[in-house]
Each structure stands twice: as C-alpha cells, then as structure tokens.
Design a protein around this nucleic acid. Structure first.
Lengths: 362, 362
DNA sequence: CTGAAAGCGCTAACAT
DNA sequence: ATGTTAGCGCTTTCAG
C-alpha cells in the first residue's frame, strides 16, 4: 500500500540502495550477513520493485506482447493459456491484443506494444500478406516469434505444427480403414494453415484414389462453411470428408445428420486441431491434435534465446509433429452399427469392424 | 529504432522539453506556431514516447491487469475479447493472467500486476472465499472491478449478469411450453454464479410443481458432471432438465442421446451463458445469453470512473439483464420432427410444433 | 564487498 | 505561453 522503495529497504537494513539492488537482483556478490539483513528488511516492509523504474533504467520491461487474430477462435484459448503460463514461469508478463482478424488493427496493436517497450512479441498473424509489413517492421525492433500461421518466407522465427504430417496421418488412417472416395473440405486463401493442409491433402490423397486430389471444396475455417460444403460435395458420394479444421468438421457433421446420412457408416469425417468441441461432438470427431503445450514452450524458448543471445543466429522455423486422435466419426465403414441406432434411409453397404479405440496415436 | 527522445524533438523544434511534452500530451495551452513546429519535428524524427519513463513520472502506465480463472472456460474468450476491445478503445493495454483456477496463483498474479503498476485491475475471482484476501488487498491500491463472479459482499465494484432473472426466464419458458416435472442440474460450492442460479431455481420452480425445488443434483460446471447428473436424476422421469450452465447441458444432452432419450420430445434441456457450443450442438440448446459486450462496457466504465474520480463514491454492484435464447432443446414436447430427419428408435410421442426460431428473446 | 552519484526519459511544479 | 528544474525508483558505473 504505502509504496515501499529501495531506499526504505536500504534505510531499514542499514546499507545503501546500491547494495539492496544487488542483493535483490543477485547481480553481484554481497556479504552474507548484509544480504540477510536486506532480505529481512525487504520482507518485513513488503517491498515490491517498481517495474516502471526498472524498465526505464534497464530498458527491459519483462513484458511480451501477444497479438492474435481472434481469441474466440476455439483453438486459441488453450494456446494462450500455455503461452502465458510458459512466459509467467520466466517472470514475464503478457500484454494481450486481439485484432479481430483485421491486419490494420493488428499493425496498430503491434506499434502500440512496441511503444510500450515490450521486450518481445509473439504474433499469430491475421493475414499471410497483409500482416507482413507490420511484422517485418517489428522484427527490426524486438525479438519476434510467429506462431501457428506463416507470414511470408523467413520473416521471423516461427513455431507451428507440421500440417503436412498431420494431413498424412489422417489420410493413412482413412486408407487403413478402407475409405477410398475421400474428399477435402478446406479453406481458400493464403494462410499457411490453409495452403499446407490442402497441399498435403492433394499430395497424399492420390494414393487412395486417382480422383481424390480433385475432390476439393474450398471456403473458410468456419462451421457455416462446413455445412455449406457438404451440399457442394455430397452429390459425388464420398466415403470420407477430410476437413481442414474441426470447425468445418462440426459443420459438415451437422449437415450430414440433418440429411439423415450415417456417420461413420456412410461417410467418415475428420477434422484438424482437436479443439474441445471435437471430443464433445456426437459422434466424436477424429482429428489431428496440435501439441499446444510444446508449441508454447518452443515459442518461449525461441524468445528467451533471442532475448539472451542478441539478434545473431539464423531464423528458425520449428515444426512440431501432431498426433492423430481417432474417435467415432471415422470408425471403419465396415463396422457393425452400434445398438440403439437406426439405419440411415439411403442404405449403404457395411460389414465387419476392425477395431477402433476412442483415442489412439497414429 | 534509433531511440528518439523528447530532447531530440525539443532541439530540432527549437523549444524546451517541457513545451514538447505539453504539446504532445495536450496538458496545457501552447502557441499554435510552436505546436506546429513541435509536431512536425516529432513526426520527422519518428518520435515514440517512452512509456516506462512516462509511467515512472506520472504513476500511470495506461495498463490494466485482467486476472481470470481459466481462459479455456468457453465463456471467457468472448468476454476477454470485449474487455480488451473496450479498454484498448480508451488507450489502455491489457496484461493478461490466467490463474488456472488456483487462488494462490491468482494472489501471486495480482501482486505481480500491482508491482507492474497497472492502473487498475479486472478480476474474475477463482474462488468466492479464497480469492477475497488478495482482492481486498488489491482494492486498497488500485481501482478494481470484479466480474462474473462475486467474492464476498461489497468487496469491490462488480459487474455481472442477473442470474436470478436469467433462471426466471428459463422457468417461465418451460412453464409456458407445458413442462412441469422440471429438475435442476447445478453446481455445488459457493461461487455466486452457482448459488444464485440454484437459489433462483429453487425459488421459481415451485410454481411449476411443488416437488420441483427439491429435484436438484449438484456437481460442478462441467460436461462430465452433466453426463453423470443425468444418471442421477433420470429415474425420477423429469420432463425438463434445467442446467446451471451450458457445459452441464451439453453433457446432459450427450448422456440422454446415449440412453436413446428424445430431446426435446421426452425431456427439454436448458443451459446458461450461451457459449458458442450451445448453438452448435444438435439439438441446439435453449439457454440464457449473457450480455457480454455490455458487461465489458460497464466494467470499463466503472474503471474509468474510479480512475478519473478518485476513490470516492460507494461500491457499485451492477447487474445486467440476460436474454433467453430459445433453441430446439426445449421445443414443446408436442412438436413434430423436422423433415429430413430420421425417427429415433426408442420412439417417443410427439406432435405439432409451436414455433422455434434459432434465437428469440424472452 | 560496499557506497556515492549519475542518470534512464519523462512530467509537473515553479519561475519567468 | 514557455523555460528551468527537480525528481519518479531503479541500475550501474566508478571509487573506495
């Protein structure tokens, strides 16, 4: 309450402010007895360092800015949580900015955060191209790590899941469970998550069926698009819908159920990200889980490295391996129907089960 | 990049640092011509105020701390978004701390944020009692607004939805659609959201059925509990499950579907909060929508008031009215099935629809 | 190992 | 209306 300063601690412990500073920061060796007295006094007075003063003097605020496109995107809360925890563990605080998918707002937030002397920036760019200038400008001022999405080649250090590997996990799984007429419900646009996932689909789907790479519908990463996409592709009678993220999968599932289509009997549905809703949906959605805690830890590590080692060293692009989470939405089409369910009207061939756990690694 | 300071601007524009400061902050009248020169120089040099210095001197960082229990609780992302937008609009930045439902961590974050000289604190307390000391201590140092949950009587200004009114909306709706054997799936514990909602249920349910106030199962605010709670209450054959939040409702719905129970034919299910999942669930969940944007705006307003007007004025406890969102999960039990849907096997009586929009006010 | 002193960049008295 | 000056609380030379 009463703002206790270094001077107060110095007075009470009977030494100079310099000594107190050294004890508390551990910057330089201090006599054991003196150190004890200082710590005692500091404790007794309830001393709290004034970060503003410290920042002014040491040019470091112990603060990092986190700029993201939409906290309401269900993939981000978990990421934010892991990031804040990782950074707090290093004694840093997190300034949060939600730019609402607007690159202009994003640029303003970045500028504002730089003005507030953040030590570093963590950015999930809102747009592949339109975020680039602001990010590039920021990179020149502070360490900056890009997360989740890219923003041009080698613009900054980056950490993301290996989307290509994730899509391969899905396709392998579908192949192994007898699906052939797969079809991709993806997102148009240049976001790296969109391009990488659809690229990986195109590359891998040919192994299932020569026609598969062309069975692609592109919209955005939303539930609404998932619903609409089903109407677009259903006439081609696919036996699996590979969705570019879980929201699309949720939408697809809804529309299929509305149409009376049996999932997974008639068609399998898969997602990407493993947002909470994927597990809670009925049927549960088979998806690719991003290693969120590890992504956060890597980002924090990269930042720490730049903050310590200065600017040197080449840009790093870290890709972490995802994990396939198998749920009911992709149970083999050959599976017998669970009891308590009614056969769909369209009627489809189906037979022997192969084995499907609620969650199995690839 | 090159750190331009007030002095540089002063030198170039040919006046004193004080004048420059006054021009840029607009604190005091300055000659038009001088002001122009200053602004020009500042522009030309790319001057960026140093917030650390400003904070040290003026004892105001333009920063507010936001402490919450769990960003992964699906109700909070929207709130966080609205709060950050409201505060950014006033030129403040937001320091985020997720205490992971741990009052001890919460206390540490609060102390840390105070050390970082936040101008104010926004706290969603993790615990009704165990958060109190930290909050009380913080209230003595900076303006503080409690959100969503309480933390003892009149500890600080607070903003929350009117839980009692919300529960009344639900009960009225159920009564109007012919439900009588209602039953409450709530949360034990002393969080205000838990106590107020179950209190309101107990108070209002008697109007439907004398036995209703006693048909109560208490657990926590989770999907898992929703599932378990169904097993606990289903033997009493209720025709409506009033859930204390949407997560419980989602769990209840899942378990009911697993049991082959028809919703809303056999039983209606309602939630509270209107998290995104409530709309996306199948059937959509009837729920009570919190006026999130308004809650955020009120909180920002309260903070601004304290920040401007000093400490004076009595503590305010603002309660905002919620809105009932009617979805399929509570359609009258007499409703006919939408076309394109397959009859469930368990077979339940059902008939004419009354009218159900995807979203209707009470 | 410790103390004295010089600011970090800015704002707010206090002069003029 | 403008300039001068004194710090905000801390870290960090530089002496001792």
């Amino acid at each position: 309450m009463a703002d206790v300063t270094l001077r107060d601690v110095a007075r009470v412990s009977g030494c100079s402010v310099a000594t107190v500073s050294r004890v508390l920061a551990g910057t330089r060796p201090v006599g054991a007895e003196t150190a004890r007295r200082v710590r005692e006094a500091s404790e007794a007075l309830g001393y709290r360092p004034n970060h503003a003063a410290r920042a002014l003097r040491s040019r470091s605020t112990g603060t990092v800015g986190l700029v993201l496109p939409q906290i309401t995107n269900p993939f981000y809360p978990t990421l934010v949580r892991e990031l804040t925890h990782a950074l707090h563990a290093e004694g840093r605080a997190v300034l949060l900015a939600d730019c609402d998918d607007d690159p202009v707002a994003e640029a303003e937030y970045i500028a504002d955060l730089l003005g507030r002397q953040v030590d570093a920036l963590l950015v999930i760019p809102a747009h592949e191209e339109r975020s680039r200038d602001a990010v590039t400008a920021a990179v020149a001022r502070v360490p900056l790590v890009l997360m989740d999405r890219g923003c041009g080649p080698a613009v900054a250090d980056s950490v993301a899941v290996d989307n290509t590997a994730g899509m391969a996990l899905v396709l392998d799984h579908l192949a192994a469970t007898g699906r052939r007429r797969v079809c991709f419900l993806g997102a148009a646009g240049t976001a790296s998550t969109a391009t990488e996932r659809r690229g990986a689909y195109a590359a891998g789907a040919a192994a299932l069926d020569p026609g598969a790479p062309d069975r692609v519908a592109l919209g955005d990463f939303s539930v609404e698009w998932g619903r609409a996409a089903v109407d677009e592709v259903w006439p081609t009678r696919p036996d699996a819908l590979v969705c570019a993220n879980d929201l699309i999968a949720v939408g697809a599932l809804q529309r299929l159920q509305q149409l009376g289509v049996d999932v997974p009997g008639d068609v399998a549905v898969t997602g990407f990200d493993d947002i909470p809703m994927a597990a809670l949906s009925a049927p549960g959605i088979t998806t690719v889980r991003q290693p969120v805690a590890e992504l956060a830890a890597e980002a924090a590590r990269l930042l720490a490295r730049r903050l310590a080692g200065g600017e040197e060293g080449p840009r790093q692009a870290i890709r972490l391996a995802p994990e396939l989470i198998v749920r009911e939405s992709s149970a083999p089409s050959t599976a017998s129907r669970p009891s308590g369910t009614v056969p769909a009207p369209g009627g489809g061939r189906r037979a022997v089960p192969t084995q499907t756990g609620p969650s199995a690694p690839a």
